[in-house]
């Protein structure tokens, strides 16, 4: 217990307070000007918006993937199951250059999108693509155990009482999955907001257009504007911490009937 607390404060707490203290070197009005400048607002909008869209995409396909992995048997299932964790195992920089190359106008996928007038790299769409890759396993792996533990008997009861399959899925199974789904969504969203490595290669990094918030921190750092970098970090930390509390609250709420 004592060891846990002291290591935790050494590695996590003290460093985090350093960010807040550094940001506090700015006067409140300066802080406000840096934290919510036009360029920073554009970056937050892109970061949170893209993370949200990617989490929604993963929310849909993550449920389907978890469903297929738990309920159905098909050849190559072990392989598919292992592959779902690829985004956990693959370094983000590798994912970044691979996706940028694929979706560039002359890339494997980009060459088919260009004639359709779709630009998927070096803009916000590229950011969403990268964050979809990064977030997928969070949703799948959160829903999977809940789906596996969900008892068949409720489903059977619904069916025997005359509900058709669609009704059973929509009214019995999906509501039971809601807490896990929300948790997975929140985890994917939180990861997407902070993601840096996979995004910068495909984003194009144009100020006001395709510049993400973590990149703004890097830019301030490179100009040795430490207090400004810390200011943007404080905004992001506040959001991360809120997300975490929400996730834990959802989990506590979902356990209330256990």
């Amino acid at each position: 217990m004592g060891v846990t607390l002291s290591v935790l404060s050494l590695i996590v707490l003290i460093p985090l307070s350093a960010v807040a203290i550094k940001a506090a070197e700015l006067s409140p009005s300066e802080f406000w000007a840096v934290a919510f400048s036009e360029r920073a607002m554009a970056a937050y909008r892109l970061t949170f918006g893209a993370a949200f869209v990617a989490a929604v995409v993963n929310g849909v396909f993550g449920v389907l993937t978890a469903w297929v992995l738990v309920r159905y048997e098909f050849p190559g299932k072990t392989l598919v199951n292992a592959l779902v964790d690829l985004p956990f195992a693959l370094p983000t920089a590798v994912a970044g250059i691979a996706l940028a190359t694929l979706y560039a106008p002359n890339g494997w996928i980009g060459q088919f999108l260009t004639p359709l007038g779709v630009k998927a790299a070096y803009n916000a769409v590229g950011v969403v693509i990268a964050l979809t890759f990064i977030g997928l396993p969070f949703v799948v792996r959160t829903i999977e155990p809940v789906l596996r533990d969900a008892a068949d008997d409720v489903e059977e009861a619904a069916a025997s009482l005359g509900a058709n399959r669609i009704d059973t899925i929509l009214r019995v199974i999906l509501p039971a999955l809601a807490p896990a789904w929300l948790t997975g969504f929140a985890l994917a969203f939180a990861r997407g907001v902070g993601e840096y490595g996979s995004v910068i290669f495909i984003a194009g990094n144009m100020p006001y257009k395709s510049e993400i918030a973590p990149l703004l921190i890097i830019i301030q750092l490179e100009q040795f504007e430490y207090a400004r970098a810390a200011t943007i970090a404080v905004v992001m930390l506040a959001v991360s911490f809120t997300m975490l509390l929400v996730i834990n609250a959802i989990q506590a709420w979902s356990r209330r009937f256990d």
């Binding site: 846990t4 350093a18 840096y196 490595g197 973590p214 921190i217 750092l221 509390l245």
Partner: peptide, 24 residues
């Protein structure tokens, strides 16, 4: 709260994590 703190590095942007050590 302790569990939340342990989880924190998961949801802190890696860039912020690096920044922390530069500040210290």
């Amino acid at each position: 709260l302790l569990i939340t703190l342990i989880d924190l590095p998961f949801s802190v942007s890696p860039v912020v994590a690096g920044l922390i050590y530069v500040l210290i």
